[in-house]
Design a protein around this nucleic acid. Sequence first.
DNA 1: ATCACTTACGGGTGACGTAAAAATC
DNA 2: GATTTTTACGTCACCCGTAAGTGAT
Lengths: 290, 290
Amino acid sequence: MIESYLLEQLVAVDTCGTLSAASEHLHLTQPTVTRSMQKLETLIGVSLFDRRKNRTVLNENGKLAAECARQILDAQSAMVDRVRALDRSHHTITIGAISPGPIMELSPLLAARFPNHAVFTEIKPEDVLLQSLRIGLYQMVFLNRHLEDPSLFSVPGTKEHLYAVLPKGHQLADRRTVTFSDLNGERFLLFSSVGIWEDIVRREMPRSRFLVQSDVESLMDIIESSDIAAFSTDIAMRTSTPSGTRVYIPFSDACAVQSYFCYCRAVDEQKYRPWLQMLGHLAGAAPSSD
Amino acid sequence: MIESYLLEQLVAVDTCGTLSAASEHLHLTQPTVTRSMQKLETLIGVSLFDRRKNRTVLNENGKLAAECARQILDAQSAMVDRVRALDRSHHTITIGAISPGPIMELSPLLAARFPNHAVFTEIKPEDVLLQSLRIGLYQMVFLNRHLEDPSLFSVPGTKEHLYAVLPKGHQLADRRTVTFSDLNGERFLLFSSVGIWEDIVRREMPRSRFLVQSDVESLMDIIESSDIAAFSTDIAMRTSTPSGTRVYIPFSDACAVQSYFCYCRAVDEQKYRPWLQMLGHLAGAAPSSD
DNA sequence: ATCACTTACGGGTGACGTAAAAATC
DNA sequence: GATTTTTACGTCACCCGTAAGTGAT
């Protein structure tokens, strides 16, 4: 049995050229490398070096051995990488959604209840989500409609309501509800990663201009220091403190309410039962708190 | 750095199913395997086992790790095999010839002069020899004619004379030379691995019957205890003691004298210069001793 | 009671470093 | 004189075995 430290020293000798350089590179002393190479030769039963008086260089055997050793060590590090990656994948859940709402709602709960798991989230269009779910890139995805697909398993999630965020001096600031047509033509600040909501507001208010902001901090600053209209939702309002200089007015249009459904692969239903149960509780609790 | 003994124990656990069985298989104690597996887990930083109270089985991480480990250990033993094979190839010379004569002449000299080298010899037809020489299966081959081929390098070898080995009571026993036609129709004992000689005698004495013997000892016994004619050559007579009950009469036909030429690949001319030099000396010395 | 695994403790191999010598550049 | 390699010797890590303990079959 050839231990790995011998192979490591062999490749170091090959790459560094001399025993002393290899020993330096490995933070070892020269006698150690000398001894290891001698041991390697006796283990294989073959001479690996041309030993001149002041110089020991790898011969053909040694060159071949070093090349093999390199591959073996690469395979070793690949092994730990693969095992670690597999382990991570077991302790990681990747969730995709068509809008941030379900994720904002779910991820803190997941993090609290499954402290050993990492949660990755992404906002993507529905077609991308479904494709990625089927190939296992996502464990769960949130869509805004129900699909009949035997290869998928789904549970209903919560609803999300869209709000207009208007300055207090706005002419509609005292309304209890607004409609998209009321605000069509208004300028809006728009967060870049709102998924389906961007499609809705652009479609419903085609005359409006949308100032897209990709940084949440900047967006909040601009909301505070300007009188440009913006958007929020009931879910977002639960997690972030509402602005004191603004009024929050729900849209009364039907499409301003999104009902989410959570999907996983049918084969994984057993595997993700705890997660889905949590979603069921959430969906059941949400209406009562609403 | 993961040492190989850990990988070895891991695959043993995978194949044997339990730690205790693995320890038995490796001639180790159970605590040793337990400790090694724990060490492996800390080195990779990942749990490899589902630890029940009385049973420790590989989990998915462990299965993957064991599979990788198996490949790594296979690569290790392959490395040893390859290096040893390469080393052997440097200390081995494989010689092919169209007849045993040149080999009988050369191999003892090679063995004496290059004690660290192994010499393998084979008797094959000319076309096989040339093909095998070109692909490096032989380092040198002996043919009975000169070829003009720039990819090959050749030196002339010795001559070999065919002799008839007749019982002393044979009607031609007192002849100084014989011809193939003199003995055409005679029964002959024939050693099976004489290469080109078999072709010659069958062609030149088509009416003769040849009793082929593959075992040299049996052939000698039959020669001693019967009066069946046989063959020998000057080279063979040099190395084996001639029979006291037989007379050795050279064939005077032209084709009963073979002139050998030794070939190696032109690209290997430098490599096999010492061998070729030895052949040159042999060819130069042979006529004077003849 | 037996089996499977783990923990704790002691021993011996061996891997490493230090020191020194030989040889070459 | 500086560099490279090798040998000799002492030390310490660590790998293994023995013994003991726990829990399950």
